[in-house]
């Protein structure tokens, strides 16, 4: 499941909209270096989900939506980031929610619009009373989602490229990782 930047598809309206989530974990490899402690400058480590990977998460969300709309027969390749704004840091313990909608689609490709939301459980509050968990002393971990960015993308069906370039016949875009993601999310596919 390397390089899969969404954990679960939670809603799908075929050909229109797909919602996926990503839980950010402290053990995720890219966070080790982003940003590592700088001893010389006296700065502690500040692990953050790189914004480029948030764009990748949206690309996978929207790419699956576009692929699903075409029955996964097309090789759907991210061709253009039309717009990308991420206004807040996403740190370990947070959950990202990606909502992608198809703005326009034809035989050549698709344009999608995307909203990025973040649920941040916030810092530890010493002595906070439990408000969930039936009085077990466990604070609530579910926080409301707030919009933190917009990412609009363009996808190309590369077998229909204008230059007439030939690509391998098998669909190398929607690999086993995506099949597993779809299956575990309860999305029935046949490809």
């Amino acid at each position: 499941m390397r390089w899969c930047w969404i954990d679960r598809i939670i809603a799908l309206t075929p050909g229109q909209r797909l919602v996926a989530i990503k839980h950010i974990g402290l053990g995720m490899e890219p966070l080790f270096e982003h940003f590592a402690a700088d001893e010389q400058a006296g700065l502690p480590a500040q692990p953050l989900m790189p914004a480029s990977l948030i764009v990748e998460g949206m690309a996978q969300t929207a790419g699956v939506l576009v692929g699903h709309a075409g029955g996964f027969k097309e090789k759907v390749i991210l061709a253009k980031v039309s717009r990308a704004e991420v206004r807040r840091d996403a740190t370990p313990g947070c959950t990202l929610r990606y909502t992608a909608t198809i703005e326009r689609m034809d035989d050549m490709g698709a344009a999608t619009q995307g909203v990025v939301e973040l649920a941040d459980p916030g810092p530890c509050e010493m002595g906070r009373e439990a408000s969930a968990g039936g009085g077990t002393g466990v604070p609530p971990v579910c926080a409301p989602f707030e919009e933190i960015g917009r990412i609009d993308l363009m996808f190309s069906h590369i077998d229909r490229n204008l230059a007439g370039v030939q690509f391998p016949e098998h669909n190398f875009v929607f690999s086993d990782s995506f099949r597993t993601l779809l299956r575990q999310s309860g999305v029935e596919v046949d490809f």
Binding site: K80, E103, D106, D107, L162
Partner: peptide, 28 residues
């Protein structure tokens, strides 16, 4: 090349008509 598709989509939105594949920019 992908910008041509983007331009076609945006023109359709801006002017409210449908552009057939290859109508504005020819293929092959």
């Amino acid at each position: 090349s992908i910008d041509f598709l983007d331009i076609v989509f945006k023109l359709e939105q801006a002017f409210g008509f449908k552009i057939q594949q290859g109508e504005l920019f020819p293929e092959n």
